[in-house]
């Protein structure tokens, strides 16, 4: 069953055709990677899923509902969580608070004026947040300030913030960009664990190591169009992909 379907999406920036009749189907419970050379339109496509950009034409449907014309927070409330290229966390707050906030958002909705409750009384949310921090091996730092974390730990925290919402779809924009090798491997392991739980993921990635160790299916984007969509082993040997993405070199 397709959980996210993109139909004939076009997007122009001035004279530049960033997305040209893109079609994409993401099956529930799979990891779907989107790869392509720089400027292929990967991030533009992702931004069309989360309400940051509006396609000129076409449709984006998630779980039977259109994602077009609604705000980012409404899209998240439908069950779509997003990880950014540069980890977006609440730097001034503690790790625990960082994870409790999405948990409150999931339980209480986009706005709730619960000014008379005490955070200290919210035992369920607290326990859930601690569990998630333990999942990403950050429970020992629960009371540290998030800004002090290493890049890799910030990524793990951001993943915990998404996972605590139990999302139906997790979008990852170059999750290992700018990371040291050890951090990259840790992050891959973590994402494998997450995928093993049946969380549907869409991953945009440059690092082939990451893509081929995670993806169930790969779409290749070049100059705004999907030039191939197949299983990883078939993509590896596809001459069109090698031409567009690798400039003809053998993988």
């Amino acid at each position: 069953m397709s959980i996210l379907s993109v139909r004939n999406v076009n997007k122009n920036f001035g004279g530049l055709k960033a997305l040209d009749a893109v079609n994409l189907d993401v099956e529930a419970g799979t990891v779907h990677a989107i790869i392509g050379p720089n400027g292929a339109g990967k991030s533009t496509l992702l931004n069309c899923f989360v309400g940051r950009l509006e396609p000129d034409t076409g449709s984006v449907t998630f779980d039977g509902k259109s994602l077009l014309g609604i705000q980012p927070h409404e899209i998240n409330q439908l069950g779509v969580s997003r990880v950014f290229q540069t980890p977006e966390i609440f730097g001034d707050l503690s790790l625990l608070e960082n994870v409790m906030i999405p948990a409150f958002a999931k339980r209480d909705g986009a706005f709730k004026m619960n000014a008379w409750h005490e955070v200290a009384e919210e035992n369920d949310i607290h326990a859930l947040a601690m569990e998630m921090l333990a999942d990403v091996a950050l429970d020992g730092k629960a009371h540290d300030t998030a800004a002090q974390l290493s890049r890799g730990d910030k990524r793990r925290l951001e993943l915990a913030m998404c996972l605590v919402q139990n999302p139906k779809l997790l979008l990852l924009d170059e999750p290992t960009a700018g990371m040291a090798r050890a951090d990259t491997n840790n992050t891959i392991d973590l994402m494998k664990t997450i995928a093993g739980r049946g969380v549907t993921m869409v991953v945009i990635e440059h690092d082939m190591h990451v893509v081929f160790s995670l993806a169930d299916k790969i779409s290749v984007l070049a100059q705004g169009t999907v030039i191939a969509e197949d299983l990883p082993e078939n993509i590896k040997g596809d001459p069109r992909v090698q031409e567009a993405y690798l400039g003809g070199a053998q993988l």
């Binding site: 980012p72 966390i89 958002a105 706005f111």
Partner: peptide
């Protein structure tokens, strides 16, 4: 105060 962008993508208005 900390990060409005993250808040929006966390489902908060």
């Amino acid at each position: 105060k900390s990060n409005q962008n993250r808040m929006n993508y966390t489902g908060l208005n």
